[in-house]
């Protein structure tokens, strides 16, 4: 009787160990690329904006942060720029909303030219080496993160935002 019990325990253990090993491996496969997803804490970074001012993401704890990744050569990014600009104009005096756009690996010339041409006012950060892009594992651009007062990613949009209203509504959700 004791024998049979021992056998059942050993069998159960072996099967469980194998299931755990395979399960953990698959978990690793799906988590290999640390894509920043909804619910994650947004990785902290320090970048300089076009004017050379340092911006530290952590300094915005307590505020709602919109983090947009873009490039001048990306047409879908270009389409949503006016919407972001419009919302920025509306919210720039609100103390609890911050809009940041991260330009991916481009020259100051390209970015400044772009900002002047499209009259863009919101702060643009220069991710010269693409470190922040890598950390967030941005695949399509534009990608926009909505980060709440605790630094958590509440929402993530990986396509062109359809309107200024759409963006405004998303911001309302993350406002402290």
């Amino acid at each position: 009787m004791a024998d049979r019990k021992k056998r059942l325990i050993i069998r159960t253990l072996i099967i469980l160990i194998l299931v755990a090993a395979v399960g953990f491996t698959i978990y690793q496969i799906f988590n290999k690329k640390h894509v920043v997803e909804i619910g994650d804490t947004a990785p902290d970074f320090i970048l300089t904006d076009v004017h050379g001012k340092k911006v530290h993401l952590k300094d915005f704890r307590g505020k709602a942060v919109v983090l947009n990744f873009w490039a001048t050569w990306c047409d879908p990014c270009k389409r949503e720029m006016p919407y972001i600009n419009k919302v920025y104009e509306k919210t720039k005096n609100q103390k609890d909303v911050v809009i940041l756009a991260v330009n991916i690996k481009e020259s100051k010339f390209a970015v400044e030219n772009f900002l002047n041409r499209y009259h863009i006012k919101f702060p643009v950060l220069m991710d010269k080496k693409g470190d922040v892009m890598d950390a967030y594992n941005i695949v399509p651009i534009p990608t926009t993160f909505f980060i709440d007062k605790d630094g958590k990613v509440v929402d993530k949009v990986t396509e062109t935002m359809p309107s200024a209203d759409y963006l405004q509504k998303k911001i309302e959700k993350i406002k402290p």
């Binding site: 072996i14 194998l18 496969i29």
Partner: peptide, 22 residues
């Protein structure tokens, strides 16, 4: 080699090798 189903297949094979041997 990084496909979830292939890893499961190898896992089952591993289980089969261990169980059949014991």
């Amino acid at each position: 080699y990084g496909s979830w189903w292939f890893v499961i297949l190898l896992g089952l094979l591993g289980l089969s090798i261990i169980v059949a041997s014991i």
